[in-house]
Amino acid sequence: MDYLDLLQWPVMIVTVAAAWLIGAQSARRRMVGFWVFILSNVLWVIWGLHSHAYALILLQFCLCAMNCRGLKKNADTVSDK
């Protein structure tokens, strides 16, 4: 059995959890959500390399850049309080 094939299912759950956290009203929870999203980006790249899903890998780099932007903007909100 190829365990890297199974990685997509827990990574999907991590991604959904990140989206849930991003929708929180608490700036700290949103901050955690962005970090969880970045973790999911890394995990999707690992799975994408294994599966030769190069469009998915490129998408994850683009999404990671947006998550880093959101992380920075949210950090400014957290530090204002």
Rank of each mutant, 00 (worst) to 15 (best):
A27S: 10
L59W: 12
Q60M: 12
S26M: 03
A27Y: 12
L63H: 06
G48S: 09
M31F: 11
A65N: 05
H50N: 11
S40M: 10
C62R: 00
H52Y: 08
L49V: 14
I46Y: 05
L21K: 10
G48T: 07
Q60P: 01
R29H: 11
F61H: 06
L58S: 13
S26Y: 05
L58E: 05
F61V: 13
G33D: 11
G23R: 13
L63Y: 14
R29D: 09
I38E: 04
V32W: 13
L59Q: 11
W35D: 01
L49M: 13
H52K: 06
M31K: 07
A53F: 08
G23D: 08
I46R: 02
S26D: 15
L39I: 14
A65I: 13
N41A: 14
A24W: 02
A55P: 01
L56E: 02
G33H: 08
Q25Y: 03
I22T: 01
A24E: 10
A53I: 04
L59R: 09
V32D: 02
R29W: 15
F37H: 12
A53L: 11
G48A: 12
A24Q: 14
R30A: 01
F61S: 06
F61N: 04
F37W: 09
L58W: 09
I38C: 01
V42A: 15
F34E: 05
S51M: 13
A55G: 10
I38D: 05
V42W: 10
I22S: 01
F37T: 14
F34Y: 15
W47N: 11
I57F: 04
I22D: 01
L59G: 01
S26W: 06
L49Y: 09
V36P: 04
F34P: 00
L58H: 00
A65L: 15
F37I: 05
I57H: 01
L21V: 01
L63F: 13
L39M: 12
A65G: 15
R28Q: 10
F34I: 00
Q60H: 08
L21Y: 03
R30N: 06
I46K: 02
Q60R: 14
A24K: 13
V42F: 15
I46Q: 01
L49C: 11
M31P: 00
L39K: 03
H50S: 07
H50T: 03
W44K: 04
N41V: 03
G33C: 09
S51T: 13
R30Y: 07
Q25K: 09
V36H: 08
F37S: 15
L49H: 06
W44R: 06
C62K: 00
A53G: 04
N41M: 15
F37Y: 12
R28T: 09
C64L: 15
S51F: 07
A24N: 12
W47V: 05
N41S: 13
W47M: 02
L21G: 02
L21T: 02
C64G: 15
W35M: 07
I22G: 00
R30M: 06
I22L: 15
A27N: 08
W47R: 07
L59F: 12
F34M: 05
G48D: 03
L63E: 07
C64F: 15
L58M: 12
